[in-house]
Design a protein around this nucleic acid. Structure first.
Lengths: 150, 150
DNA sequence: GCAGTTGTATCGTAACACGATATAGTTGGT
DNA sequence: ACCAACTATATCGTGTTACGATACAACTGC
């Protein structure tokens, strides 16, 4: 009854209705969070991508700036997509380009004063929403799917 | 033109560097998951939206079909965006439209046999990835802020 | 300095969600 | 039964965004 075999083939997969519901619920949680984010961010005249960009800068480990290549990794985008994103953010005075003293190829993307303030405000809202959603965003637990009664 | 005049909230305690990093890390986790999802899904000839649509159907609570309006809620989209999404998915034989016996206005969106199989395969991959990411997707824990004394 | 590599930028294209609008079906008051 | 208001689904045109392909600049090793 418990299909323990994890074949990667086209045979019927061992996912139960509860598994699908858990997967769907998780995705729904993400959607709701991103939806909230979009509304909050647009209410401040920014796009979701711009917020993500700024957050990636301010939230970069042990730094507060990043190169385009680093941003491409953090945002999971192609580097030239980040170029355009930074262009748009720069046009709105949210970030600036600064040259790296050690490598002239590299561009350091930094937050402007305006960007800092917008990010601080929006991030506070996001923290609150994250607290509010809480378990609704929790990753489903499949530590043991053999026994449905949990 | 940026509306920076809408700071009607009283300046709450500023977020720390650690807060920003937690926020950024969480967003990074979401991005990675969605990125994985997109690659997996496209590798099977589908779009991320189509997978989400199918998952919302199969994962609908106590049912395996849904109306367009219900889907609009689950996918956090406008209903007419769902119409187009269903059109595209139907063109690829992933879902079908069925009429509701009690209300002729309502359209029941259901999975086709083909959609079922694609969804099952992809969902298994997603479950695995979710297990793999695990804590990387965990919601940051802010249990120290102002106590919830309303 | 030249080739190879890495980092950044530009251009045209395709996909997607949206607002505005249109059509069909249902409900309730008279 | 009729009409108006309401709900559910569908269509059209538009703006934004990420992408592939391509180009340019700077660093490395020789």
């Amino acid at each position: 009854m418990q299909p323990d075999t994890m074949h990667d083939e086209q045979a019927a997969e061992p996912l139960t209705k509860a598994d699908f519901e858990a997967l769907a619920r998780f995705r729904f949680g993400i959607r709701r969070y991103l939806r909230f984010s979009e509304q909050a961010v647009r209410g401040h005249g920014l796009t979701p991508q711009q917020y993500q960009l700024m957050l990636a800068l301010k939230g970069f480990p042990s730094r507060e700036w990043a190169t385009l290549t680093e941003l491409a990794d953090r945002l999971q985008l192609r580097h030239h997509s980040v170029v355009e994103l930074v262009n748009r953010a720069q046009a709105q005075d949210l970030v600036t380009r600064a040259s790296d003293p050690t490598d002239a190829r590299v561009v350091r993307v930094e937050l402007t004063r305006h960007g800092e303030r917008a990010l601080a405000r929006l991030s506070a809202l996001h923290r609150d929403e994250l607290q509010r959603l809480g378990t609704a965003l929790a990753v489903p637990d499949w530590s043991d799917t053999a026994d449905g009664a949990a």
